[in-house]
């Protein structure tokens, strides 16, 4: 009994409920005439697409900058990487790699200034991050119209200038990662080996980073900034590094997402992208100042699982698509839960 209790406390009620909910959806799937292999296939694909974006939460959480609501800034770096590469007509794996390179450059620059800004507003990072994300998306809306891109596949058809709202990556790097070493499990389940491998590689990279001297310093800054300072760590510098990492990861995340999804979504596309990622890592068991790679993987799987399963299963069971409502309630409810929970821990101290 004690074991079970401890397990529940360790694992957290919220996650158990969400896990059970997902499990019941999978059990109900055959009853609702939903093909289980299609469901799994979708879940795996969406897991791969979202995972790096969720991973982008980790560095900032670990360094005490809170949940990265400013993820859209990183996504913009990724969009810039993708559009610039398309402009240069680079295709396939080379194209994607080049896009990642450019993304990293932009992400580093953006992240540097974003990090400097967050250092000036310690204590209100999350609110400001949200609005930095929003403002940058709104600013880029103007830029997408004005930047001198020429590739006809990207700009509006009718002779004008300005990029389209959605640009297909077909013929460039559509499914470049997905198709690498992919194999067919069943009729409608193709395992996207390449993407999953890449995602795991990114996770491994971040896991490794937190095992280095620099990564340890970053963790200490998040865990107790005063301790870190007293141990001779430059707190502000560590925070900037973490923000740069998060921003770059956000950019790479969107590239992975796009190569599977097939489209680059510009303009208001990245606007609300931070929220699912934030919700996912919280569902995975992270708190506002502690997150692990396990949180990322578990959380992304649970969250994306619910997103794929609810529409299909619920739809055929009660003939209503309530998935959107469930998504909103679960993801935002999870964020609120996390916000109120941290306070309790601090009060106890």
């Amino acid at each position: 009994m004690k074991h079970i209790q401890n397990f529940i406390i360790d694992f957290g009620w919220a996650r158990i409920i969400i896990g059970l909910f997902l499990l019941s959806l999978f059990i109900l799937a055959p009853v609702a005439d939903v093909r289980i292999d299609t469901s799994i296939s979708d879940t795996v694909a969406r897991f791969g697409m979202a995972c790096v974006l969720v991973l982008a939460m980790v560095p900032m959480i670990q360094s005490g900058c809170g949940l990265n609501f400013g993820l859209p800034l990183g996504i913009i770096a990724g969009l810039l990487g993708a559009t610039c590469t398309m402009e240069l007509e680079l295709k396939g794996l080379i194209g994607l790699s080049f896009a990642m390179l450019i993304t990293t450059v932009f992400g580093t620059i953006f992240g540097f200034f974003y990090g400097k800004l967050l250092n000036k507003v310690k204590g209100s990072e999350m609110m400001i991050a949200t609005y930095v994300g929003f403002s940058s998306v709104a600013f880029m809306c103007m830029m997408w119209l004005l930047l001198p891109f020429k590739n006809p596949k990207m700009i509006w058809g009718y002779g004008g200038s300005g990029l389209r709202t959605t640009i297909t990556v077909e013929g460039y790097w559509l499914h470049v990662l997905n198709n690498f070493l992919s194999f067919r499990v069943s009729e409608s389940f193709v395992f996207p080996t390449g993407m999953i491998l890449f995602v795991l590689f990114m996770c491994l990279l971040i896991w490794g980073f937190f095992h280095t001297k620099l990564g340890s310093a970053l963790t200490a800054v998040g865990s107790n900034p005063d301790f870190a300072k007293a141990s001779g760590v430059d707190i502000d510098k560590m925070r900037v590094i973490s923000v740069i990492l998060s921003t770059v990861l956000g950019g790479i995340g969107i590239l992975v997402y796009q190569q599977s999804f097939g489209f680059i979504q510009l303009y208001m596309g990245p606007f609300y992208m931070a929220f699912p990622a934030v919700a996912a890592i919280l569902i995975g068991g992270a708190s506002i100042n502690k997150a692990t790679i396990t949180n990322v993987i578990v959380g992304t799987f649970l969250f994306q699982g619910i997103l794929t399963m609810t529409p299909s299963v619920m739809n055929s069971l009660i003939h209503t698509d309530m998935s959107e409502v469930i998504r909103i309630i679960v993801s935002n409810g999870m964020i609120i839960y996390a916000m109120t929970r941290v306070n309790k821990a601090r009060q106890k101290k």
């Binding site: 609501f69 999350m126 949200t130 929220f275 935002n332």
Partner: peptide, 15 residues
Amino acid sequence: KEMVTGFVLAFFAQG
């Protein structure tokens, strides 16, 4: 963290 919580709460209420 009133502001950011209120902000998310508005989304939650939307659901």
